[in-house]
Structure formats: structure tokens, C-alpha cells
């Protein structure tokens, strides 16, 4: 009897400890930041957001993240297709290389891009001779975002391609469809949920990226300063309210995206 009682106490203690940890670690900080941003009332929250530098940083981030996502959709769909459909020497190596951007520290990624695109590198000189610079300008930010979000679309597309019923494709061929037509009418629609959720995850990651971007962006306020770098600058110069306001905007945006991804995925599995 005492043994049973003790085990019940133990399990009750475990449960509360784990749940408490969960709530304190995850829920409290998120509520805290929403609270902090609104602590000065709505008007100061809006003032912090409509501050030209803040607003420019947000717009720039959204614009560049969109460009990076589009590049990744094109590149990722193609690579995902090649890696699942074709068998060739080196395929396994390429397939494991896909995860490299997730494994590498973002500061290291920033340093890589800095070295590769800098004014003394081959690419930098070439771009210079054409009359534009990459590093510390918007193209460098896009390159950083593309690198960091590279795996998302590929990893979202691959399982779908493996699942596609070969008979659908064969039926299309038998009925005389060309390869291109089969791809666009049969295969692409099947890949669509993967492309969409991969693209949304990549977009939300690109919005949030800091480490790779801060080293290559130049961070000129209003011109090459992205939102996360703006937030960092506000923290450093001791304006937590301004930092919190922009953070809340970005967070809400990311939460909506995350929810949409979940929605797309649950709808797919429910079907």
C-alpha cells in the first residue's frame, strides 16, 4: 500500500514538474513579449511600428524573404524531383548534403558568404566590373536567406513524390500525354501541398533569420537593415519597447504561417 501511494505521489510530482516547465519555458516568454509591447498602450505600440526605420526594415524583410522563397521553390522543386526520381552515382551524397544548411551555425554561414562574395573574391570582382556590388547590399541578404532555407522545400516535396501512385503517371502516358503535360497535369498537382508548406516554412525562417544576414547585410538603417537586425539594434540601444513592437508583428506573422502549414498538412492527411 505504501508502495502504491508513493508511486502515485511520484507520478503526480513528475506530471506537474514537466507541465510547469513547459508552461514557464514556452508560454510565459511569448505572453511576456505581447504584454511588454502593449504595456505603453495601443498608441505607443503603433508609434513604434510606424516609425519609418522600423517600417522600412519590416517591408524590406518581407520583400527579400519573398524573393528568397521563390528561388527556393524553383530550385527545391527541381532538386527534390531529381533526388527522388533519378538514380545516379552520388545521389546519396547529394541527399545528405541537403541538410547541411540546418547543421551549420548561421554565423558560419554568414562568414562563408562574406568570403565568397566579398570585394576581394572572384565573384565580388566580377560583379564590381559589371558595376554593382553584392556584399552589404540586398543581393547578399537574399543569398543568405536562400542558403539558410534551402532544405525546406526539398524535404517537403520528397515524401510526396515517393508516395505518388505510378499508375496515374502511366495512365497519362498511355493516353498519349507528353512528358511535359504529364508533369504539369499529374505530378505537379500532387507535389503542390509539399511545395506550399515548404515554401511557407522557408518564408517564415527567412523572415526570422539573423546570424547569416547580420554579417553580410551592411545593416544601413532604412536601406539594408532587416527586421531582426533592427530588433537587435533597438535592444542594444536600450529601447525594449520598440524592439518588442516589431517582434510582436513578426511573431504574429510567423504564427499565422505556422498555423496555415499545420492546416495544409492536416487536410492532406485527413483526405
Amino acid at each position: 500500500m505504501t508502495n502504491m501511494l508513493r508511486s502515485r505521489w511520484w507520478s503526480w510530482g513528475f506530471r506537474s514538474a514537466v507541465m510547469l516547465y513547459f508552461v514557464v519555458l514556452i508560454v510565459c516568454p511569448i505572453l511576456g513579449i505581447y504584454g511588454q509591447s502593449l504595456s505603453g498602450g495601443w498608441s505607443s505600440f503603433l508609434d513604434n511600428l510606424t516609425e519609418p526605420l522600423a517600417w522600412n526594415a519590416v517591408l524590406l524583410t518581407v520583400k527579400l524573404a519573398l524573393v528568397a522563397t521563390l528561388i527556393n521553390v524553383a530550385v527545391g522543386t527541381m532538386s527534390g524531383w531529381v533526388l527522388t526520381r533519378y538514380r545516379f552515382p552520388g545521389r546519396k551524397l547529394l541527399n545528405s548534403m541537403v541538410d547541411l544548411p540546418f547543421a551549420l551555425p548561421t554565423a558560419v554561414v554568414g562568414l562563408m558568404i562574406l568570403l565568397l562574395l566579398g570585394p576581394r573574391s572572384a565573384v565580388g570582382k566580377w560583379a564590381d566590373s559589371l558595376g554593382f556590388t553584392i556584399l552589404f547590399h540586398q543581393p547578399a541578404i537574399v543569398v543568405a536567406m536562400v542558403f539558410v532555407t534551402f532544405p525546406f522545400v526539398i524535404r517537403a516535396v520528397q515524401p510526396l513524390l515517393e508516395e505518388i501512385d505510378a499508375s496515374e503517371e502511366e495512365a497519362a502516358y498511355t493516353m498519349g500525354a507528353t512528358k511535359a503535360k504529364t508533369f504539369f497535369r499529374v505530378i505537379l498537382p500532387n507535389m503542390m501541398p509539399g511545395i506550399l508548406s515548404g515554401a511557407m516554412l522557408a518564408f517564415s525562417r527567412a523572415l526570422a533569420e539573423f546570424g547569416a544576414v547580420v554579417l553580410v547585410a551592411g545593416n544601413i538603417p532604412g536601406r539594408t537593415q532587416v527586421a531582426s537586425v533592427y530588433i537587435f539594434g533597438q535592444i542594444e540601444s536600450d529601447h525594449p519597447a520598440a524592439a518588442a513592437a516589431v517582434s510582436v508583428l513578426l511573431l504574429t506573422f510567423s504564427f499565422v504561417i505556422l498555423w496555415l502549414v499545420n492546416y495544409v498538412q492536416t487536410r492532406r492527411t485527413a483526405r
Binding site: V27, I235, S247, F255, L258
Partner: peptide, 19 residues
């Protein structure tokens, strides 16, 4: 809720703790 940290920029994660 478990997924929320994925959506939070690391900078914002740090800011939360400072706040």
C-alpha cells in the same frame, strides 16, 4: 504550442528572456 519556438526568431527568443 510545442511548435511555437520554431516560429520565433532567435533574436526575439533572446529578447523575451531579457524582457
Amino acid at each position: 504550442i510545442v511548435d511555437l519556438p520554431f516560429a520565433v526568431s532567435p533574436i526575439i527568443g533572446g529578447l523575451m528572456i531579457v524582457l
